[in-house]
Design a binder for these strands. Structure first.
Lengths: 153, 153
DNA sequence: TATTGTTATACTCTATAACTATA
DNA sequence: TATAGTTATAGAGTATAACAATA
C-alpha cells in the first residue's frame, strides 16, 4: 500500500521535526521562572501523582517512560525539594507510596498554568478550525501511543 | 471568545502530554542501535547540515533551539566523532563552516531510517484518514512554531 | 526466583557566565 | 561596540549494571 506508507512516513517525519520545537518552547518558559524551576519530566511526575495519588515508583517509571532507576532519581530529587512524599507501604513492603505535598500541589498548579499559557500564546490567532484540527491530530497520536508505546528494552 | 480559548488550552494540554511519549519512543529506538548511538539533538544537527551544508554554529543553535554555547558543545562532539567537519571561513573569520562527512551522511541515513521505521511501526494500522488528520495537525503546529518559536531568554 | 526499589557510574543535554577573536 | 564562537561550571535526564529487600 504505497499511499498509506507514504502517509506514515510523512507523519513520522512531521513528528520528529515538530516535537523538539515545542519542547524547547515549554522548557524555556519553565526555566524562565526560577521560583518554579521544574523540568518537564518533573512536571509530568507531579501531574501523575495528582491523578494517581499513592502511586508506586514502578508506576511512575512506566508513566514517564523511563527505567525504574531513572524514575528513582527523579523521585529522590522531588522528595528532597519537598514537593512529594515517599513512604513505605505496610502491606507490600517492597513498594513505596508517593504523594504530592502541599507545596507540590501549589507548584504543579503554577507550572501548569505557565506552560499552558506559553503554548496558548504560540497558538494565539489560529482559527478555531485550525485549533480543532491540531487537537484532533494530537488526540489521535495519544491514543496510538498509550496503547502501543510501552518501553522497549 | 470562550470556545476558542478552550481549544487553545486543550491543544496545550495535548501537546504537553503527547510529545514526551513520542520522544521516548524515538530515543529508545536510537539507543537500541549501539552502532549509531545518536541522540535526538545530534540527529537533528545532522539533518540540518544535510539541508544547509556550510552552515554556521549560530545557524545550528537557532535550528536546534538552544544557546550558542550548547550548540558549540554538540558540534564539538560530532566533530570528534568525525561525523561533521568544522573549518574556518576565510571571508568571515569569526565564523565556522560546518559540513557532514561521508560517515556523517551514512549515519544520518541509517538513523533516519530506523527512527522513521519505529514511528511508522507505532502508526501502523491507522486508517489513511487518521494518518492524514494527524499529519495535518502536525504541519499546522510546525507552521506556528517556525514563525514564532524563537528562543526567548 | 521474580519484583521493587536504590545506588554507582557514565554520558548527553542544557544553561549561564566569562572569555577570545573578529567585524 | 556588537557578533561568532569556545570553555568552564553546574544541574538534570537518562541508561546499564550491580545490589538489597521483599514476595
Amino acid at each position: 500500500m504505497l499511499i498509506s506508507e507514504t502517509s506514515v512516513e510523512q507523519c513520522a517525519g512531521s513528528i520528529v521535526e515538530t516535537l523538539p520545537l515545542f519542547l524547547r518552547l515549554i522548557r524555556a518558559e519553565l526555566r524562565r521562572h526560577p521560583r518554579l524551576n521544574l523540568s518537564l519530566p518533573q512536571l509530568r511526575a507531579l501531574v501523575y501523582l495528582r491523578d494517581q495519588p499513592g502511586a508506586s515508583a514502578s508506576g511512575m517509571a512506566e508513566y514517564l517512560g523511563v527505567t525504574r532507576a531513572t524514575a528513582s532519581t527523579t523521585i529522590e530529587r522531588l522528595v528532597q525539594r519537598e514537593l512529594i512524599t515517599r513512604t513505605d507501604d505496610p502491606q507490600e513492603r517492597r513498594r513505596v507510596v508517593l504523594n504530592l505535598t502541599e507545596a507540590g500541589h501549589r507548584q504543579l498548579e503554577q507550572a501548569s498554568t505557565i506552560a499552558q499559557e506559553r503554548v496558548a500564546e504560540a497558538l494565539a490567532g489560529l482559527s478555531p478550525s485550525r485549533l480543532r484540527r491540531i487537537n484532533e491530530g494530537l488526540l489521535l497520536l495519544q491514543s496510538v501511543l498509550h496503547t502501543r508505546a510501552g518501553i522497549t528494552r
